[in-house]
Design a protein around this nucleic acid. Structure first.
Lengths: 219, 219
DNA sequence: ACGTTAAAGAACGGTCAGTTCTCTAAATGA
DNA sequence: TCATTTAGAGAACTGACCGTTCTTTAACGT
């Protein structure tokens, strides 16, 4: 305790902040700061330094928990996840699919779109991270496709083998491709075209002479 | 190699390099250095500093010509472009399409794949650059799709309106999506599945009852 | 020969990545 | 209650790279 005239090492004001956060509380604060930074500056401009500053902590506390920017962002997104979405049952496959694609298009036009794009870019750098990203993109989204298709199967609109064929995800795949290449917003005309000219013909009509390679389902 | 005890300010060896490159010669050297760096370390790890060093020049000479890393890489790729490819005419659409997709898959598994991924990630940062990237990705590649489809039209395999419909690029779009999500190498099984289960049914069969919104189904 | 242009290359101020200090507040346990 | 352990705050630090600017000098044009 250098109460006397410390030459230079003395920190002037020494009463640090009041309550010091720890453990889970601090963790949530960091994740929230990450979400705020993402919304404000986007994925590309996000830095660990700014996140730490925004959470009113130090970089060390951040690095103690997450090894990289991408991992941090990935966890933050999990926190801010929109629930599984309330896709209304419109009574026919066309309406359900349009609703699903439009919902995705809106998401892509939000800051989440830039995050998705940025994370895809990082897959080259870190193969381990790539696995995590794929899980989120491939597991979360197509589950909604599955729901929509299962309804259609129950209605008799669609034959069951379509569920496990590559045709099932063509609409969402094409939408994702469009977004990655041309950015947001995705014109509604594109969505309607894909559904009417490509997707519905593929899943409503039994493959003419197709070997019904359905068995090859990706699994 | 400073044999004598040079004090400090003296540059020891002062006869600068022999022939000093200028203008176009230097430009090509920089682009070549960029290609070498890309092949060696990939897009993500490429820095202007390393490119300049590899080209045995200074950063200033690089920045005098290109405003950003992405622009430089884009130009370097133009240099190293594989010619328009010799897509063999296999006599039927299926063979031509398989050849085209397999060629693309090989490209994606090369360093060029990582470059493509990295550039797509930068589209968020710089909208002006995004335009350039789109031109290359969307103009160069689908031109090959067009060639393949035109042959099929001449053979009578495909109706002309397909050329301008969204169906035309479905195969390449799905391949690109697969690569961006799951990386390389793209399994050949995927390519065959896409062609047989999705692409050929779409372009070979006149849309059954489809409004054929694209072209007024002339035939 | 002379002036203009531009390359070589060092240096600079700046940002950020990660790491490693010290100091101190909170939790823990006897 | 007090001593010990744990971990956050925050700064310092090394190191990479960015983009700019400076000086020196080679190449080029007239």
């Amino acid at each position: 305790m250098p109460s006397s005239a410390g030459p230079a090492t003395e920190p002037a004001v020494d009463h640090r902040k009041g309550p010091r956060r720890r453990g889970e509380e601090l963790e949530r604060a960091i994740l929230q700061a990450t979400l705020d930074e993402l919304a404000e500056t986007g994925y590309a401009a996000l830095t660990m330094e700014r996140v730490a500053a925004r959470a009113r902590t130090g970089k060390a506390a951040v690095y103690r928990r997450w090894p990289s920017r991408a991992q941090l962002v990935l966890d933050a997104c999990k926190l801010g996840k929109i629930s599984d979405v309330d896709l209304p049952d419109t009574g026919e496959l066309r309406g359900d699919t349009l609703a699903l694609l439009r919902h995705m298009a809106i998401t892509m036009a939000s800051p989440l779109g830039g995050i998705m794009r940025g994370l895809l870019g990082e897959m080259t750098r870190d193969p381990e991270l790539a696995e995590l990203i794929r899980e989120r993109v491939h597991t979360v989204r197509p589950s909604m496709v599955h729901v929509v298709l299962e309804r259609a199967v129950e209605r008799g609109e669609v034959e069951p083998w379509v569920l496990t064929s590559r045709r099932a995800t063509v609409a969402t795949d094409l939408l994702r491709n469009q977004f990655l290449l041309f950015g947001a917003p995705v014109p509604d005309e594109f969505i309607v075209d894909v559904v009417d000219d490509i997707y519905l013909p593929l899943v409503l009509n039994p493959a003419p002479g197709s070997g019904s390679g359905s068995g090859s389902g990706s699994g």
